[in-house]
Amino acid sequence: MDDGQLLAQVARGDGRAFRDLYERFADRVFRFALTLLRNRHLAEDVVQETMVAVWKGAGSFTGRSRVSTWIFGIARHQAYRALRDEAKGERIPEERGEEADPCRAVEREVRVQRAVAELPPEQREVVFLAFYEHLPYAEIARVQGVPEGTVKSRMFHAKKRLAEVLRS
């Protein structure tokens, strides 16, 4: 069963379908939120809020984009809300960023992690959605709510920056 069919069942109130959809997306949304927020507790909140919104809003999905685009769009909205709350002092994250474990990670991997972490959030999103989720620019543009050209520009600058950092 594809994501669209599963979401249609969720829209009819099928709890088992919702659990299946959760299993398909929870880890991916968590990693996306973690990439953006660099905080596990906030990322878990984003997964919760996103999946509750998916349950409530499944009936409003029109099918004009991929299901994953729709879900990552919700997750992005929730992640930026968490960032705004944090900026207003409503939430105090318990950890600042995902620190690599030098015992478990090779030096190169640590450098890649750090290079990604140093990108502006919008560029980090593009890199995650393109390289990990394999979303084309048009779908990333829908997630970010910007023109496709902006996504291309963000990818260009992200790739340039990553290449510079990793070459140095």
Binding site: R19, A26, V29, E44, M51, V52, W55, V116, Y132
Partner: peptide
Amino acid sequence: ELRATFGRLPGAPEGTWLSVAART
């Protein structure tokens, strides 16, 4: 390298589903 890096990030904590289920 990016795919490997993102792929090694942890998944959602075990208890997250219970919190979601309680609200849905």
